[in-house]
Every structure is written in structure tokens, then in C-alpha cells.
């Protein structure tokens, strides 16, 4: 049975169900227990499992370090980074420890941690609470970066992430928290490392994640009226990437537009673009286009913030330019 749930509630439900399902799962982070999380995502867990929900000091390194160490001992911690930007103060733990455990132990130990990180811009909180951190973590083999876009994906992918034996950074876009969608009541998994073809089309492939999918869909609708068929792909797991799905789509359409929140320089759009031109240049009919935020810090004032991020018009312009190349 399914009913409508918000993205936030879907994540909360996944956490409750996994706490129920597996006694080795516990949550920790700043204000995640008693208060139920700064964004309310972990509500109700402490009340049911007071020993398995831990409020911590403002110590991101300790939070992730503790997660890593306990994971080696067979626990499954789900840590919260109140804002993904704070990954900078626990980067060592993610990069040098979490991502290396399996490698170092030659497969004898793994590091089944999930780090839930609240990402993205749009809530007028300026540059320390609005950054898109995906690329900061995307060249760390050993880490998995997941970016769900819908309540259905949020629940299923969080359950998969918790059950997965590798360290997963689970990105939650703060502007999607109130997004509602159909979510089954029972626990279910969504396969990681598998991109979703959200819409079929023959002329342009758009790759986008999280909030950027809205722009992609709006542009696709507009372009449909012009007779241009847009295929939309949500990689869902950004790293390791489901290259196959993207390659097959672009081999069919011959045109690729990547829509990405966050600076253009070295963003995941750059990686996808490079990958496609490297692997299937022969199939391309037009240059690859990236639609991204500007290469600036996110500013506070709404006028400033909104100017920095991509809009549907930018996506349309990019699509038209690849069509007319």
C-alpha cells in the first residue's frame, strides 16, 4: 500500500523501519535524539530507542570517527550532518578512514556507515549552509554518493544505503523536504548504482539530480511543443556512476545537457561530459552542454542567490543550442 508522504517523512519512516529491522543500526549527530533533528528528520526515534539515538557535541570529526570505528565492529551507524557544508570539518574521517577501511582490511572489514547530509541552496542561508558538496566527495574511491530526488527514492535508497556494506553519503536536498509523493508503507530497497530514466525522448539527453530535475522536466515539456524529444536521466547514485544508462541514452540522442546545482568548475557535469565524450564521441551530434550555478559562493540576499542558480530558461537555451548546432 502506498500513500502520499513528504520527502522528509519518507526518510524518517525509513529510519524507523531500519531501527526496527536491525538492532545494529543507531543514529547519532547534533540534536538528532531528543529534538529529532534540526530539520525534524529523526523525530520519534529517541522516544522508542533512547539508547540507540545519541545527541553529540558539535564535533563532526568525532561523529564520523565514531561511526567508522563502530562500523568496523559490526554496527550500522546513521550519522547526520546538519548541513552538508560541515563535511569540511570531518573530511578526514570520510576520506582517509571511511573510504579506506575495506581496502585496508583486504575485504575482512567493511564500513557500513550512512552519513546523511543536508545539501543544496535555496533557503537564504548564504555560503556556509547552501553549498552543493557532491564534487568534494566524488573522487574518493571507496565512498558512495547518493542523491535521491523523490520521497519514494528517499525512503528506498536510504534503506538500501543502510543495508549496504560500504560508506554512503546520503544527500538530502533541503528544498525537497516538503515535496510529496507516493511512498509504500512497507520497507523496500531501491538498487544503488542504477540511474533512472525519468522520461523517454529521442533528441536530447538531460542528466540532472535532485532539485534540478524540476527544471529538466519543465524544459522537456516546453521542447515537446517544438517537436523535440527530451530524455531525462537521474543518476541517483552520483558515484560510482551508472555510466551505461547515460551512454546508451546519449548514443541514441547524440546530444547531452547536464543540469547541475553548484559551480561549473569540476562539478559532476564535468565528469559526465568528459566520460561521454571519451567513450562515445562518435555518437555525438552536438557539443555537450552544462547548465550549472555560477562559479561563486552562494550569497544571502534572495536576489543574489537566485541569480546564481540555473533556471528553466537556461536549460531551454542549452537544449535549443544543441539542437541547432
Amino acid at each position: 500500500m502506498a500513500r502520499k508522504l513528504s520527502y522528509a517523512k519518507a526518510i524518517n519512516e525509513a529510519l524507523h523501519q531500519e531501527m526496527e529491522h536491525d538492532p545494529s543500526v543507531f543514529i547519532l549527530g547534533e540534536d538528532v535524539a531528543r529534538m529529532g533533528g534540526d530539520f525534524g528528520i529523526t523525530q520519534g526515534i529517541w522516544h522508542k530507542w533512547p539508547d540507540r539515538a545519541r545527541d553529540t557535541a558539535l564535533s563532526e570529526s568525532a561523529i564520523i570517527g565514531l561511526s567508522v570505528g563502530s562500523a568496523v565492529c559490526g554496527l550500522r551507524p546513521v550519522a547526520e550532518l546538519m548541513f552538508a557544508d560541515f563535511v569540511t570539518v570531518c573530511y578526514d574521517q570520510l576520506v582517509n578512514n571511511a573510504a579506506k577501511i575495506h581496502f585496508m582490511y583486504g575485504g575482512e572489514a567493511s564500513c557500513p556507515i550512512v552519513v546523511r547530509a543536508v545539501t543544496g541552496s535555496g533557503i537564504r542561508c548564504a555560503y556556509h549552509h547552501s553549498q552543493s558538496i557532491e564534487p568534494w566527495l566524488m573522487n574518493i574511491p571507496g565512498l558512495i554518493i547518493v542523491a535521491p530526488a523523490t520521497p519514494y527514492e528517499a525512503k528506498g535508497m536510504l534503506i538500501s544505503a543502510i543495508r549496504n556494506n560500504d560508506p554512503v553519503v546520503f544527500l538530502e536536498h533541503k528544498l525537497l523536504y516538503n515535496r510529496k509523493g507516493e511512498v509504500p508503507v512497507e520497507p523496500y530497497e531501491i538498487e544503488l548504482f542504477k540511474a533512472e530514466i525519468e522520461r523517454k525522448g529521442d533528441d536530447i539527453t538531460i542528466v540532472a539530480t535532485m532539485r534540478m530535475l524540476d527544471l529538466a522536466h519543465a524544459a522537456a515539456k516546453e521542447l515537446e511543443n517544438e517537436g523535440v524529444g527530451v530524455e531525462i536521466i537521474d543518476p541517483r547514485t552520483l558515484f560510482p556512476l551508472d555510466k551505461r544508462t547515460i551512454i546508451e541514452s546519449v548514443a541514441k540522442t547524440g546530444r547531452l545537457v547536464v543540469v547541475q546545482e553548484g559551480p561549473k568548475v569540476m562539478g559532476f557535469g564535468a565528469e559526465i561530459g568528459a566520460m561521454v565524450s571519451e567513450e562515445i564521441f562518435e555518437y555525438l551530434r552536438a557539443p555537450i552542454k552544462r547548465v550549472t550555478s555560477l562559479d561563486v559562493p552562494i550569497a544571502f540576499s534572495p536576489e543574489l542567490e537566485d541569480y546564481v542558480n540555473p533556471t528553466m530558461d537556461h536549460v531551454l537555451a542549452a537544449c535549443r543550442s544543441v539542437m541547432s548546432f
Binding site: F26, D51, S61, A62, I64, G65, L66, S67, V68, G69, S70, A71, V72, C73, G74, L75, P77, D92, Q93, N96, N97, K100, I101, M104, Y105
Partner: peptide, 25 residues
């Protein structure tokens, strides 16, 4: 022997985890 590290101070927080696991279990 959990001695994975070439980074000063890194295992000092990782050690929290094995200690926490002892209390948890």
C-alpha cells in the same frame, strides 16, 4: 590491530567507535 593511519589525530576519533561498540554490545 586497528592501526590504520598515516594521519595524526585521525584514529583518535575513530577509536571512539570501537569503544562505543563495546558499550553498545
Amino acid at each position: 590491530n586497528m592501526g590504520f593511519n598515516g594521519i595524526q589525530g585521525s584514529t583518535v576519533v575513530t577509536a571512539l567507535g570501537t569503544a562505543f561498540a563495546s558499550t553498545y554490545k
